[in-house]
Each structure stands twice: as C-alpha cells, then as structure tokens.
C-alpha cells in the first residue's frame, strides 16, 4: 500500500482526472501520450498487486479467526469474544483497503494494449502529426456497456442459465505516418457472462458465473497513391488475418485487416503483438512506387 501511495503522490491533476473518469479522448503527440499513460499503468500494476496481497491476508485472517474462535469457545467463551473483536478490526480494515484499491483499478486490456504500442507509433508518426486516442479504462462489464440479456435456458446439470452480453469499444486511435499513410486502430471486446444455477444431490443451490470474451481488433491503413500501390499477393511470412480487404478509393489504397481473439474471463490483458501483426500485414499488401527520401 505504501508504494501505491507513493505512485499516487507522483500523479498530476490530469492523471487524477483520468483516474476519476477512467476515460481518455484527445489529440497529442505519441510521446506525450506515453508521459500521460505510463504513470497510470505503473499505479495500476502496484494497486493490483496490493489488492491481491490484501485478498490473501483476508483469507488467512478468516481461516485463522474462525478456527481460533471455535477452539476458544470450548475453553473460555469470553476469550472467543475477545478474539472476535481482535480479528474483526484487521478484517474490516482490509476490506476498506481493497475497496479503495478497487476504485483505482484501470482496465488492463486497454492500458496494456495501448502503452506498448505508443513508442512504435511515435517512431513512424509524421513529425507534425498528433495521435488521436480514445481509451475506455472502465472495464468491459460495467452497466453502461451491457447490450442485452438472453432468455433463461437449461443445459446439463444447470436448470437455469442466464447470459448477459456486453460490448466494450475500449480503444480507438488514428495517426498519420511519415510516409503519408493514415492509420486507424479499433478494438472491441465482446463479453458473454453466464450465470448458471444448479441444485446438488443434497438440495443445496450452487451458483456459478463464467465469462467468455471475444476481442475484435481492426486495423485500417490508407496508403497514398503517390507512394504505394497494392500487390496481388501479400509479401512477408506473416500468418493470414481473420479478414483482409484491399480497396482503392480517393487516390489511396486502403487495406483493412481484422483479427479475432477468444479467451475465458473478461477484462484481462491482451497482447499488443496482435495490432503490430495487423499493421505489418497491411504493409505487406502494398509496395512502394517510387524512391524518395522522406
């Protein structure tokens, strides 16, 4: 918790605004975006670690507390009361601490995807071109992102399953590269959260909540005709993407690439290598039409 306090003290008022709203939408150079997001990422990593530690401490306190209180009931009931108070104080304190840390939590997927990409985008960005970046750091399963709820159904041992669906367009970015290419990145996380209810042979009701996620990553690059022309077959050894479209319009070759990543859980980190691959694949669909020193 000390390191979290230190990280919090280092934050500017702009950082604190982002922590409060958990939304980012602005235009600025990629290097400036890095200066804004890196301290928030550092704080988020520390806060996650502190929350995890507090959770483990709580588990131990509950187990040790219940065991000691039950044992002392047989020896001296008054001692059980004293132990109850003794264990209740740190348990309440840890719950409050976890609540405070939870409020600092930022979506790992959005921050973990954007931050590693910024130095790469800064390398290729045109000197005068800002990066337009919109990030939603609230996480995929907040109420505002709920898109619907399915009808209850039964499957196997579960007599009632209700699926709730969420759509989280958490990253959108646009930038102009030094070679004149206009790059657009968009990432949407779709989550299906299933609440399953079953009754075991002893008549006890058991509830399980499981989430599945599908992350759709889209990259679109408009290559200026003065520098590039489309090629029939992609160059390079990069594996094919899930969808690829090459169109020529308004004096530009537009290459759109899509990859869909599926996993269990919701809101976890996503490898930024997917977006690097999509951009590299888009560049594999064109070749230069002239020699020029940019």
């Amino acid at each position: 918790m000390t390191s979290v306090r230190e990280s919090l003290r280092m934050l500017s008022s702009e950082h604190r605004d982002v922590l409060r709203t958990k939304l980012v939408d602005d235009r600025r150079p990629a290097a400036e975006w890095h200066a804004l997001l890196a301290p928030l990422h550092d704080l988020d990593v520390r806060a996650d670690a502190a929350r995890s530690r507090a959770g483990k401490q709580l588990l131990w306190l509950y187990v040790a507390g219940i065991a000691l209180i039950l044992a002392s009931l047989f020896v001296a009931p008054i001692a059980a009361l004293a132990l109850l108070v003794l264990f209740a104080i740190p348990i309440v304190a840890l719950h409050l601490q976890r609540g405070r840390l939870k409020r600092l939590d930022l979506a790992d997927a959005a921050l973990g995807l954007a931050l590693p990409l910024l130095p790469l985008l800064a390398e290729d960005a045109a000197d005068d071109a800002p990066l337009e970046l919109a990030l939603d750091l609230r996480g995929p399963t907040v109420d505002a992102k709920r898109t619907g709820e399915g009808e209850p159904y039964a499957r196997g041992a579960y007599h009632r399953i209700v699926d709730t669906f969420f759509a989280d367009p958490f990253l959108h970015a646009r930038i102009r590269f030094a070679d004149g290419a206009h790059v657009r990145l968009a990432v949407v996380e779709h989550v299906r959260r299933s609440r399953k209810v079953k009754r075991n042979p002893r008549g006890k009701t058991k509830i399980k909540v499981k989430s599945k996620r599908r992350i759709q990553l889209d990259v679109s690059v408009a290559f200026p005709a003065r520098n590039y022309v489309a090629v029939a077959a992609p160059t390079g050894a990069l594996p094919p993407t899930d969808r690829e479209r090459v169109t020529v319009r308004d004096g530009a070759t537009v290459v759109a690439e899509r990859r869909v990543v599926k996993s269990a859980g919701a809101g976890g980190a996503i490898d930024s290598g997917h977006l690097v691959d999509l951009l590299a694949r888009a560049y594999g669909r064109v070749e230069p039409v002239r020699r020029k020193k940019l």
């Binding site: 290097a31 890095h34 200066a35 890196a38 301290p39 990422h41 550092d42 973990g112 931050l115 590693p116 990409l117 130095p119 790469l120 800064a122 390398e123 990069l238 594996p239 990859r259 990543v261 490898d271 930024s272 290598g273 997917h274 977006l275 690097v276 691959d277």
Partner: peptide, 25 residues
C-alpha cells in the same frame, strides 16, 4: 508461426523507449 503473444513490452521510463523499440524492431 506467430499468432500474437509477441508484442512489445510496456516501457514506463520514456528514456528507455528508443533503445527498447530498436531491440523489439
């Protein structure tokens, strides 16, 4: 055959950005 999982690491120190990006490149 890579299918993601090999992205650049997040660089917290901006002074490290150029050298880390050159290595990832």
């Amino acid at each position: 055959v890579h299918r993601g999982g090999h992205g650049p690491e997040a660089v917290v120190d901006p002074e490290q950005a150029t050298v880390r990006t050159a290595r990832y490149r």
